[in-house]
């Protein structure tokens, strides 16, 4: 049954997806690199709120702030230590992307190893933590209860999106970021300090993604080291819907995917008895359809090759 809860879930999930996917598109557009460490930003954010809750710090706003700083710092570190040196040497973007893959794997198991130790120190299970944090209280409207986490999510995502918009559109550094995205060489010729601007961009991207990770943890309510990996498919599908180019379409993609995962599956379940475990299939179908029908040729680089369905008439 598609009821209020599906709709509310769609909203909460979609907002979390949006906050996670926007910085992915942003960083891709500026650097042409799909950054797999993005998955770690999510996990990092999720664990920030979960571990803070575990030691009794249950203010969600503090958690969001700390997550932002951690995610941003990690992103800048990656850029300075790995991406920028590779870029300067003239490495292919594919190579930089693979390096980010390596970082992703390294961090992921570093997190596992650290949690393993924490497990012993804190004497509690840290590999699977229930999120305990407090923001807005839940609100009951008639028969519908709106969860406090949902309100936190709405507030946070609105603030984050607005802030991103303002920074990119209204500030000097935002203009510099956009200039680099449009044309690296031209931007550098016109005296934009590429290194510093990119570091700022990465800080913004990593921080926002980690904030998204907090929101994702609020939606999941339980945090595991796989929490970021679990939504690889969704996040990348959303970014592909945005063509890894348009921030607006990325936001739209977040709701398309979350709607697919909540409402479409529910409808198919009710009418055709489709098992709910088929959820990833629907997301994958969305991804394939987008790639087939609106191939993101412009941003992703592509082949001027067209599949012809019907042969054209000849003389």
């Amino acid at each position: 049954m598609v009821g209020v809860s599906e709709v509310l879930n769609t909203v909460q999930m979609g907002l979390a997806y949006m906050v996670i996917a926007l910085p992915l598109t942003l960083s891709y557009r500026v650097t042409q690199v799909i950054n797999f460490v993005h998955i770690i930003f999510i996990t990092l954010g999720a664990y920030t709120v979960a571990l803070l809750g575990l030691i009794g710090l249950t203010n969600v706003w503090i958690a969001l702030g700390i997550a932002f700083l951690l995610g941003g710092a990690l992103a800048v570190l990656d850029n300075v230590a790995v991406f920028e040196p590779l870029w300067r040497r003239g490495s292919d973007v594919l190579i930089i992307m693979v390096a980010s893959l390596g970082l992703w794997i390294f961090y992921k198991y570093l997190i596992y190893a650290v949690l393993d130790k924490l497990f012993i120190i804190l004497r509690t299970n840290t590999l699977s933590v229930l999120v305990r944090t407090e923001g807005f209280p839940s609100v009951t409207l008639g028969a519908v209860t709106i969860d406090g986490y949902l309100i936190d999510t709405v507030v946070t995502s609105v603030v984050v999106t607005l802030a991103l918009y303002l920074i990119l559109m209204k500030t000097r550094i935002g203009k510099a970021i956009r200039a680099i995205a449009d044309n690296q060489t031209l931007a550098e010729i016109s005296g934009i300090p590429r290194g510093r601007v990119l570091n700022f961009m990465w800080f913004l991207a990593g921080g926002t993604a980690a904030v998204g990770g907090v929101l994702w943890a609020l939606f999941q309510t339980t945090v595991t080291p796989e929490i970021g990996d679990q939504i690889i498919l969704q996040v990348f599908s959303i970014a592909v819907i945005g063509g890894l180019y348009s921030l607006t379409k990325t936001a739209l993609g977040a709701f398309i995917v979350s709607g697919t995962e909540n409402i479409v599956i529910a409808v198919l379940h009710d009418t055709f008895g489709l098992p709910l475990s088929f959820r990833p299939f629907l997301v994958f179908s969305v991804l394939l359809i987008v790639i087939l029908v609106w191939p993101p040729l412009g941003a992703g680089g592509g082949l001027p090759y067209r599949f012809r369905i019907r042969p054209r008439a000849r003389r």
Partner: peptide, 24 residues
């Protein structure tokens, strides 16, 4: 050369229409 499909118009090569063909 088939890199782009023209918005309008035709390209003929040796009596054959080639616009819309792929570059290869």
């Amino acid at each position: 050369t088939g890199f782009y499909v023209p918005t309008r118009g035709e390209v003929w090569f040796e009596g054959e229409r080639i616009d819309g063909l792929n570059p290869n």
